[in-house]
């Protein structure tokens, strides 16, 4: 897997974790069951995301900033040739290429970075 794609996945997973904590339901459970201090956890995740964003290469960062402006999900899984960010099929040629995930590519339709799962 391309290191920048791995970094993007990590950023997205952390942002999902942060979003879950901030939205109340997961935050309440983390606090009640696991004794997590939600505000501290959110701050910690924000710091980590900032640190990881700083490691994005310039070209990737520009696209990342463009996509984050549209919503929280910057990486979309591709399953059976469908981008699960916008639910539009990516080209058959791209979907079947070897070495997928070894480069950073984005969806022609929604612009999200693509992570091939199938």
């Amino acid at each position: 897997m391309h290191p920048q794609l791995e970094l993007l996945l990590e950023i997205q997973d952390l942002q999902m974790q942060r979003g879950g904590l901030a939205d109340g339901t997961l935050g309440d459970m983390e606090s009640d069951v696991f004794d997590i201090k939600v505000e501290d956890a959110i701050s910690s995740l924000d710091e980590k995301v900032l640190e990881l964003e700083g490691r994005l290469e310039e070209g990737v960062r520009k696209r990342y900033q463009l996509v984050t402006g549209k919503g929280p999900r910057v990486v979309a899984p591709v399953i059976n040739g469908i981008c699960y960010g916008c639910f539009v099929a990516i080209s058959t040629a791209r979907a079947s290429e070897t070495g997928r995930n070894r480069r950073v590519e984005s969806c022609d339709h929604c612009g999200r970075f693509l992570y091939h799962l199938d």
């Binding site: 997973d13 974790q17 983390e30 069951v33 004794d35 910690s44 995740l45 990486v75 899984p77």
Partner: peptide
């Protein structure tokens, strides 16, 4: 962020990931 060990010998590590 904090241990998922909830006591009584039980732990529930968890996460979401793409």
């Amino acid at each position: 962020l904090g241990s998922t060990g909830i006591g009584r010998g039980i732990a529930i590590p968890h996460c979401r990931s793409l």
